[in-house]
Each structure stands twice: as structure tokens, then as C-alpha cells.
Design a protein around this nucleic acid. Structure first.
Lengths: 106, 106
DNA sequence: TATATTTGCAACCATATGGTTTCATAAACA
DNA sequence: TGTTTATGAAACCATATGGTTGCAAATATA
């Protein structure tokens, strides 16, 4: 089974869970309150996120707090790096174009 | 059917295709040469990417050149923004910690 | 015109995905 | 101790996914 950060963020509910956990660690029940699905469905999402190591569990009595592993998010950023150069170049080109237009106007 | 940039980049083959098209526009046949799957499988990936508007088609005779729409990549970057603050903060904290250690050493 | 090339699409298939309901287990509490 | 609470896991289901093979259509070429 494919299990990487890109698959982790493919589902909108999982992205929302990641967003929640970015604010604070939460229990499955706490997370489930924010969604219309069952707690069990959220639990399955948490399993995927755990397998991708996007979240870490912290046992506290009978509760489990899920923490976001922010490091994993950097992997996406790293992949994006190759494109960032491209769109910055395009931005520069546009910038130069505008500068030239302004120049010619004078 | 869910069709967004996050689903587009969920598949490793599609990520590779996006990587190729970042370099230059290519035809389906040209793209397929880089993979072990059939041309038709690549074609299906291109369909998903087209539906997500990650690529654009340019007809040239019987060939179709696929171009990357770099703008779509920015959407990922935008979503990542919320986490970027977090990991930069953590980096600063680590930085401060190191600075303090250095200070106390003196 | 006849043939080869490029491509998309349909049909099919095995497996993955995301959800549900039901259950088992362990901790908290009366 | 018996009951409630928090959780994960299993079984099941409809649909999505990623691949294949076999076609049809349109363009290029002999």
C-alpha cells in the first residue's frame, strides 16, 4: 500500500484534520466533533496519517492525543522547490515587461 | 468525482509527469517513453491532470503537446503557508536556544 | 488512395478508498 | 464491582483508482 505524505493530503478531510492538529494536539473524539462523519471514519484517517508519520500519538490514560509532525509538511515544500524557481522566473519576466512598458511610456 | 490539485499529485507517476512537463511541453507518446506503463495509462493520467487544470493541451497536427500550468502548483504552496509559519517558529526557537547556550558558555 | 502514426475512449479487472455498523478492550468512575 | 467512556479493529459495502487490451478517429506519409 502506498503511504506517503502526498497520499496523506489527498483527502480533504485529512487535510482539515492536519489543519486542526496544527493548532493543537487533539483526541479522536475531539477531532470527530468538527466533522459530520462518524468517529470511526476519523479514526481510519488518523490511522493513515499515523502510517505516513504525519501525526504521532501520545497516550494519556484512556485518551490518545494526536500531534502533528510538522517535519513531514516540509517534504511537500521540498518537492515544490523545483516549481518555485519556475514561477518566480515567470514573475520576474512579468515584472520586467511592466518595467519596460513604463519606461517606453516616459 | 473529486478533482483538485491535491488528488492530482497523489499518484507518483503523475508527480513524475508534472516534473517532466516542468522542463518542457511534451506529447503523450514522448511522456510514455519515460515510464514502464502503457501509453494509454499515461493518457489516463493526463486526463486527470487536464481535469484538474494542472496541464493544458496544445494541438499541433495529430500531436498534442501538454504544458504544465505552473499556477496550480502555487495552490499547494498557499495551503502550506499555514504550516510554514509553524516550522519557521520552531526553527527560531531552536535558534534562540542555541544562542542562549552560547551566551551561557561565555 | 492506401497505409502508418498519434491519440483518446470504452470495456474490463483487481485492488484501494472512504464510509458505515458492530464489537472488543482498557481506563475512569459510581 | 458494575457501568460509562475512549478508542481501535473487523466486516461489509459502494465507488474510485490505476492498469490493461481493443478499438475508432484524425492526421501524416508513401
Amino acid at each position: 500500500m502506498r503511504r506517503d505524505i502526498f497520499q496523506a493530503i489527498a483527502d480533504p478531510t485529512r487535510r482539515a484534520i492536519i489543519g486542526l492538529l496544527a493548532m493543537q494536539a487533539m483526541t479522536p473524539n475531539g477531532i470527530a466533533e468538527h466533522f459530520q462523519t462518524t468517529r470511526q471514519a476519523v479514526s481510519k484517517h488518523l490511522r493513515v496519517l499515523t502510517e505516513c508519520e504525519v501525526v504521532k500519538q501520545e497516550y494519556q490514560g484512556r485518551e490518545i492525543y494526536y500531534h502533528l509532525e510538522i517535519e513531514r509538511m516540509k517534504e511537500i515544500d521540498k518537492w515544490l522547490e523545483q516549481f518555485r524557481k519556475l514561477w518566480e522566473t515567470r514573475f520576474e519576466q512579468l515584472d520586467n515587461l511592466l518595467a519596460n512598458l513604463k519606461k517606453n511610456k516616459k
